[in-house]
Design a protein around this nucleic acid. Structure first.
Lengths: 348, 348
DNA sequence: CTGAAAGCGCTAACAA
DNA sequence: TTGTTAGCGCTTTCAG
């Protein structure tokens, strides 16, 4: 790594050395070099040493295309990314991409990014890469929308692991990794209860959002377990700052909560706006907790307490599951549910 | 796209059809199929039609590895990403990645993500991919740090385009695309001047940040051109919220500015914090402008006016330049400087 | 306009 | 333990 390969005379700088070059230099056959790279234990120590020296001198690295063709694998993981949503605190995806790249490297894989040409086709992009054998497997991240690509990929027998549960079809055969949203909001709710709050409101998404209902259940169970009321304390709106702002204003007027748990940081920031409008201090007068631990949560005054998904861990588990899929190992559990943490800041 | 390929009997679902399968089905030779795909104009219309039908029926797509091996190109663009910085409004990179994926697709390329194994080696990751011919070219984005990878890649004769000027070496041979930071802060400064501000302060980065000094120059030239003073109105600090907060407090006490232009949204949010501390209203009492148009700028109250980099356009131009590099076309201009815009919000 | 032959660089079998 | 042979699927000459 980082060692400058010797510039071999007569070789164009543009064309890297091949197996044959190394073999010639080391005075062995091509196959022996291949073995030195892939099955070192098959070689006699001194031969191995000689071949390794030649490899280092030439700066040899196996040509990917040739290896891919021969082994019928690309060592590439496909990840489809959606267009950036402006105006929301959507940070999860980007953080996950970083973690995935790192985890993949550890397993000898690179991440290939693609996007949907045709947004209406749930399989757009996937299908082409599959048929061209351009990737070994996919990481499917948009299952939270209740999108059908997981099911369709299952049908096609495509190798993939989902970040997100198959809500629609709990018996789906593919492996998945997900974060327990209910546990996260439960954590948030308990945190507020422990600080003495008893009237805790919920601002979440519309009822058709499965993930939204899951997060909501952490809040409601938290209150119920302490015998506290939830009725009149919940609101379901669009995921925008404006919606969070309006919903919190209404709740404040009608139900007088002393704390809010929100399905997203975007909504929570809307709550902060309402508090500012009314001269109330977030954290002192009314507590607020968001979800996703976005940059905005970290930067906003007085700091937004937020549920943080363990995305690094998700990525590691996704890659682990992927390795299982690609080696056709039977998986004991189809899914793995990870527990989020709470980043406590000034707002609570 | 999206059409379900016919399941051919006797063929494993896992192994896609090959050129030979299509040829057999269409009753032509393999080369004719290859021509139908790559040089359609060479075929007689009726033959072409027949081959195309067979391709559609089988859902054929050329095997990438085989094509890559033969054509000595991977149709992959390498992009190195750095670990996520928490606590700053770093949004530029992520937005750029999305734009790049989209622009690359238009040119028939996919984006391969990698990260640095060894953070101290400026060429970490690049070198291996190059020698393995795993990518056709790189997009180098971290030149703004004054990092040496551009120069090192130039030395190696590696094909790449930089997002960011070669500040250290203006005569560098590689193509680059950049955003004119000075023009952005000039835009911000003129905007404030037009609104009647005359005492406009600057909060930027340390002097050794070339890009920081560039952005600063837009502010200073803006004031100078109207015969307004700059002395005592500038501060150079670390890129953190806390630094922006402290620096603005000091400036407010010592120089009584009515507006701030900042080198980043992170710093600008620090200014907003100081204003909140002192019961001043951002936008009404004191105007603030940031840089990068991050999510935080959009979410924070009352909305942070911010310089927005035209990253979609940058990505398009980077890909265009890349195509030139890969076809060895001489480039008239080594670099292209794009002009940012101003997203005006409540803070000004 | 279509077909035959060659080979990109590598690795999986097998033979020595 | 090492070398030989074959072929992954494709495209690029070059003949027909």
């Amino acid at each position: 790594m980082g060692r400058m390969p010797e510039r071999v005379p007569g070789r164009l700088p543009g064309s890297p050395p091949t197996l044959a070059d190394v073999a010639e230099r080391a005075g062995v056959s091509r196959q022996t070099v291949s073995n030195a790279v892939n099955n070192a234990e098959l070689l006699r120590p001194d031969t191995l040493e000689r071949v390794r020296a030649a490899i280092a001198e030439l700066g040899y690295l196996p040509n990917r295309a040739a290896r891919n063709l021969r082994t019928r694998s690309s060592h590439l993981l496909g990840l489809r990314i959606s267009p950036h949503l402006e105006g929301t605190a959507e940070a999860t995806m980007d953080r996950f991409v970083h973690s995935l790249v790192e985890a993949s490297r550890g397993a000898g894989y690179h991440v290939l990014l693609f996007d949907a040409v045709d947004r209406t086709d749930p399989l757009a992009g996937y299908d082409d890469l599959l048929r061209a054998t351009a990737v070994d497997a996919f990481v499917v991240t948009d299952t939270y929308l209740g999108n059908p690509q997981a099911g369709l990929l299952d049908e096609r027998g495509a190798p993939f692991v989902a970040f997100g549960r198959p809500w629609d079809d709990p018996g789906a055969p593919h492996p998945w990794v997900d974060v327990d949203g209910a546990a996260g909001t439960r954590l948030a709710t308990d945190h507020l209860l422990d600080r003495g709050h008893e009237r805790i409101a919920w601002i979440g998404w519309r009822k058709d959002s499965t993930i939204g209902e899951d997060r909501r259940s952490g809040w409601s169970s938290g209150l119920r377990d302490r015998g506290l009321p939830t009725s009149g304390l919940a609101s379901r709106v669009e995921d925008t700052v404006a919606s969070g702002r309006e919903a919190s204003a209404v709740l404040l007027d009608e139900a007088r909560p002393t704390a809010f748990v929100c399905a997203s940081d975007t909504l929570a920031i809307g709550v902060l706006h309402t508090l500012a409008d009314r001269g109330l201090s977030a954290g002192r007068d009314v507590a607020v907790v968001g979800f996703d631990d976005s940059q905005a949560a970290q930067l906003v005054l007085p700091g937004l307490t937020s549920v943080r998904q363990p995305l690094e861990q998700v990525a590691v588990e996704v890659v682990r599951a992927l390795e299982g899929v690609m080696t056709h190992q039977p998986r004991p559990e189809p899914g793995l549910l990870l527990v989020p943490t709470l980043s406590v800041r000034g707002s609570s």
